[in-house]
Each structure stands twice: as structure tokens, then as C-alpha cells.
Amino acid sequence: MEWMVWTTPTTVFFAVIAAMLAGMTAWEVISPTVERKGFLPISTTRGDRLFIGLLSAAYIHLVVVGFTPLSIWLALGASVLWLLVLMRWG
């Protein structure tokens, strides 16, 4: 694994992603998702909303890091907030 040059932040990042996938699977087993339509233009399942949330979070981070002097923690906060909104009402 040495050649993969792990760092603490990236380890945490992938651990969180893995935990999310595991959590979503467990949630799906306990209570299967129902496809529904929220404020997004397409009807989505829970997994779809998570994916949309994560993808937009990546873009939010890129914009904040690349084009604003703001802290990356602000981007993270905004992304988490957006993810929660999306999961609940998307």
C-alpha cells in the first residue's frame, strides 16, 4: 500500500464515503426506498439524491477552492447543508 501514498485527510474522506455506502445499504434493507418527486425536476430514490448531493458537493468545493479566497471548511459546511436539504426535500 506504500505506493498509494495515503494521507490522513484522504483516508478519512474514503472512510466517510465507504461508511455512507454501507449506511445506505443498511437503510435500504431496513426500509426500502420509494421513488418520489421533490423539488428536483426528476423523480429520484434515496440513492439518486445522495449521488446528486455528492456530485454537487464536489463542484461546490472546486468553485470555492479555485475561484474564491474562502476557507474550504465553508465549502464543506455548505455541501453538508445542501446534502441534507436534498435528502429531505429533493
Binding site: 505506493w3 498509494m4 501514498v5 495515503w6 494521507t7 485527510p9 484522504t10 474522506f13 474514503f14
Partner: peptide, 9 residues
């Protein structure tokens, strides 16, 4: 994963 690791170092 490796690409992600590279990208922050």
C-alpha cells in the same frame, strides 16, 4: 483512490 491521494500532495 491513488489519484485522489496524489492530488493533495
Amino acid at each position: 483512490m491513488t489519484v485522489v491521494n496524489y492530488s493533495v500532495q
